[in-house]
Nucleic acid binder design. Structure first.
Length: 250
DNA sequence: AACCTGCTCAACCGCACGCTG
DNA sequence: GCAGCGTGCGGTTGAGCAGGT
């Protein structure tokens, strides 16, 4: 019987826990000069007694150039809330919208700052009835994004399940102009995922008012605009009242 | 001062997925 | 189709710290 002979890597006791400045420097200088095509070999080649995963995490979260080290500001907080309301706990995808921030950072920030705030606001929304104009709702969406759009989430840890509501309810503001305003306001010309040259009602997008999956599916297929277009069409076709929008259910 | 409690955040763990042979 | 491997992601842990009693 043939037996596969595993390639024995030199068994060194692998360090765990916090990284020392020396380890950081070794990893940084190695990656800057050699890259990281294979993380499993990085620690060996860099002379680190760590595993590849640990090196990768350290690089992505702390050593990678371009990372912001300051506190998450109000604008970024808003973005997190907005995308969390539609993507759920897809931290890496949310992080894509926040240059210089890592998924780990966002995840931590959510659990330490935003989760309570979010749950509190959800309770508040159910306890209060409000009336507002379309314009103010757009502004509200920008300031309190969870009130604007709520998409069903596939994952078990979705916020909709946390709050036991919003099941299969696509909340929207009161018409296409709101959707248009929201998305055009949200995605500026500098946003990599938004193409201002595309007309939201043109034939470049499939004219079906169905959201077939989270934005991630559209990212994978390379047409994120289709996702937002679908959202807009659903908003346009809906006859939900403002209360439905705000409370996320009929 | 000592203890308790809650919070923050860096890091680890386990799982899923994609690629390759 | 399957196994092995590497990578990425989300959940969880635990050390350190601050504030309260």
């Amino acid at each position: 019987m043939l037996k596969t002979i595993a390639v024995e890597r030199p068994k060194q006791r692998q360090r765990k826990g916090f990284w020392s400045p020396e380890e950081d420097e070794k990893l940084r200088s190695f990656i800057l000069s050699h890259g990281h095509s294979c993380w499993t070999t990085v620690p060996i080649k860099a002379g680190l007694q760590r595993n590849g995963k640990s090196c990768r995490l350290r690089w992505i979260n702390y050593l990678r150039p371009g990372l912001k080290r300051d506190m998450i500001n109000a604008e970024e907080e808003e973005i997190i809330l907005t995308f969390h309301s539609s993507l759920g706990n897809k931290w890496s995808r949310i992080a894509k919208f926040l240059p210089g921030r890592t998924d780990n950072e966002i995840k931590n920030y959510w659990h330490s700052h935003l989760k309570k705030k979010w749950l509190k606001s959800q309770k508040l929304q159910h306890a209060t009835s409000i009336s507002t104009s379309s314009e103010s709702l757009v502004a509200c969406g920008r300031r309190n994004p969870q009130t604007l759009i709520s998409l069903p989430e596939k994952t078990s840890s979705s916020p909709s399940q946390e709050s036991n509501d919003n099941n299969n309810n696509y909340s929207c503001s009161s018409g296409p102009e709101i959707a248009r305003l929201f998305f055009s306001e949200w995605f500026t010309s500098s946003d990599p995922y938004f193409d201002h040259s595309s007309n939201l009602t043109d034939s470049n997008h499939i004219q079906t008012p169905n959201i077939q999956g989270p934005v991630s599916d559209y990212e994978e297929s390379g047409d994120v605009n289709q996702f937002y277009y679908n959202e807009m069409v659903m908003m346009s076709n809906s006859n939900w009242t403002l209360n439905d929008v705000v409370f996320g259910s009929k």
